[in-house]
């Protein structure tokens, strides 16, 4: 079996963000982390591989040398077998082009499972897994909190509005990871050393034979939403009730 897994870097959610001069993206000098949902996808891929002898795991990222560093340190150092970087400007590609790039890599690699984070915590679009599944004509199981793989099928429990849904998908399939899927492991020192020697391919978008490399959605401007102001600190429950009643008229 072969599993393809995503390794996307995102800006640190606690970093103070500044809008770039062209107004279309954030300024470059922020700290980056591996997308937390990709960490869950990587952990899930490793667990499936550990339970199924002979499984190969491949991490894919789109970006530049910095992204390559995240593929090595975030995925290969944790135990993923090899890496693929597709060179592209992260700022200007949309979810749809990412999905088509992934589809191009899937056609080269023929994995049985593509495991992605359910969303990247910068763009927050929550689209790529679903788009990819449709481009491939594959079944999907998004927002996974539990995955069991056996006999060419995956039984996936999904976190949805109102509770938990369980689906059985026939492989090959796309699965997107939710945060409660697992606790991502840390890379060991030995893992970090090994990662430097693991196979790593660098591809250009042109290598993927895409019919079209345009985007469908463009960010035309970023703005800072008006923030909330801190209100008052009340001294006790009685004052809170009185304010909620007479001032806010909320109860």
């Amino acid at each position: 079996m072969k599993i393809l897994v995503s390794a996307k870097r995102v800006s640190d959610p606690n970093a103070k963000l500044a809008i770039a001069k062209d107004g279309k993206w954030i300024e470059g000098d922020v700290e980056y982390i591996l997308n937390p949902f990709c960490e869950n996808a990587i952990e899930a891929a490793l667990q499936i591989a550990e339970a199924n002898d002979g499984t190969e795991t491949v991490a894919i990222g789109i970006g530049d040398d910095e992204t390559a560093r995240f593929i090595r340190q975030g995925a290969l150092a944790r135990g993923i077998d090899r890496g693929i970087l597709v060179s592209a400007e992260e700022e200007t590609i949309d979810s749809d082009l990412i999905a088509r790039i992934y589809a191009g890599v899937v056609h080269r690699e023929s994995p049985d499972i593509v495991l992605l984070g359910k969303q990247a915590i910068d763009g927050d679009s929550n689209q790529v897994g679903q788009l990819l599944a449709e481009y491939l004509g594959w079944p999907q199981a998004t927002f996974a909190s539990k995955i069991e793989v056996a006999d060419g099928k995956a039984i996936v429990t999904r976190e949805v509005d109102g509770g938990l849904e369980t689906l059985e998908v026939t492989l090959p399939a796309v699965i997107t990871a939710d945060l409660r899927l697992n606790e991502p492991r840390f890379a060991s020192l030995a893992g970090i050393m090994k990662a430097k020697k693991k196979p790593f391919d660098e591809l250009e978008i042109d290598d993927l034979d895409l019919d079209d490399t345009g985007t469908k959605v463009q960010v035309v401007g970023l703005t800072t939403p008006s923030g909330r102001k801190a209100g008052v600190i009340v001294k006790d429950v009685e004052e809170l009730v009185q304010k909620l009643r007479s001032e806010a008229r909320a109860i």
Partner: peptide, 17 residues
């Protein structure tokens, strides 16, 4: 208009299709 970066910024996006 859509929230991005956990709503810390609002992205105005156009769909060109």
């Amino acid at each position: 208009a859509r929230p991005m970066w956990a709503g810390n910024l609002t992205g105005n996006v156009k769909i060109s299709t």
